[in-house]
């Protein structure tokens, strides 16, 4: 295994993005709307394509604006469909996000001459290429790392400033409304934060795995604590751990050893996002089993 500067930046960027993802994730999980993350991750596509078209390149502000608008449209459509047609919320989300994603795909094909977005990059992420290019062109801090830092910073500020509102809205929105906590506004701000995070995470993990990055670390943390602030802090730590372990795994610690041992040619490096998501899943199952085993011992049972 050869470690080089590209690996360092990949690891830093993946960690920043993984930590940024869990901040909206915690509150989506608590409001039992985890799959909204999956929906928004896909629904932002038409916004990105339009942002691309307007700015004529990968100007980040235009992409972010487009994506946030598309993400919020997705949640507005979902609510509208659920309310006025009576289909269940999951189905309403399924209708609205697939439609928006499909519109995005069609636009991308139609405007292929002006918009340079690879469908496979949208689905699976493209961090390796993005960072590789920067390093080839002379180094410095890659833009992707800056964007990850930006997402993490903005999410931390948002959660810090609106912690009370987010708590009230996700715990009891009806009561929150009667005490003037504006749950609907808070909800849409959370959706905007989710959309923004999705766009930035796109590059690293693609739209399919965003939901794993957002939801699984908070889900692991929720097995371990019943305090909200600890839950947020723990989710960040778990995200960092999964990002580092997952990256190292994908890089070939296991890839090299296992494929070598089985007599296959050495893989060298696999998809970083895949590695991180797999580690997330493994840690979740391991935590769950450990917890169940610990609870079998009567002395450790939580007191009711």
């Amino acid at each position: 295994m050869n470690w080089n500067i590209i690996d360092t930046w990949l690891l830093v960027t993946a960690s920043l993005i993984a930590m940024a993802c869990v901040l909206p994730g915690v509150f989506l999980l608590l409001s039992r709307q985890s799959m909204v993350a999956h929906g928004i991750a896909h629904a932002v596509l038409p916004g990105i394509v339009i942002g691309h078209l307007v700015s004529g390149g990968i100007e980040t502000p235009a992409l972010l604006t487009g994506a946030i608008i598309a993400g919020i449209l997705c949640t507005v459509f979902t609510r509208f469909l659920h309310r006025f047609s009576g289909v269940e919320e999951g189905a309403a989300l399924g209708i609205s996000f697939t439609t928006l994603f499909a519109i995005g795909l069609i636009m991308q094909r139609l405007l292929a001459d002006h918009v340079h977005i690879e469908p496979s990059h949208v689905l699976f992420g493209n961090l390796e290429t993005a960072i590789f290019q920067v390093i080839l062109e002379g180094g410095g801090v890659p833009d992707a790392a800056w964007r990850g830092l930006f997402a993490l910073a903005i999410n931390l500020v948002f959660v810090g400033f609106f912690f009370k509102e987010l708590t009230i809205t996700t715990f009891d929105a009806a009561h929150g409304d009667t005490v003037g906590a504006r749950p609907r506004l808070t909800y849409y701000l959370l959706m905007a934060m989710t959309a923004l995070t999705c766009v930035i995470a796109f590059e690293a993990v693609g739209s399919i795995l965003v939901v794993a990055m957002m939801i699984v670390p908070p889900a692991i943390a929720s097995l371990l604590t019943k305090k909200l602030k600890t839950l947020v802090a723990l989710s960040l730590l778990i995200a960092l751990f999964c990002a580092v372990t997952g990256y190292l795994l994908s890089l070939g610690f296991l890839g090299d050893t296992i494929s070598g041992a089985m007599g296959f040619p050495k893989v060298g490096s696999t998809n970083a996002a895949g590695g991180i998501s797999v580690v997330c899943g493994i840690v979740f199952v391991a935590t769950l089993i450990t917890k169940k085993l610990a609870n079998r011992n009567p002395r450790n049972r939580p007191i009711r």
């Binding site: 996700t170 715990f171 929150g176 305090k227 909200l228």
Partner: peptide
């Protein structure tokens, strides 16, 4: 939901 009784009342 991961909060204490006091935190609910403070809302």
């Amino acid at each position: 939901y991961p909060i204490s009784a006091r935190e609910v009342v403070v809302m």
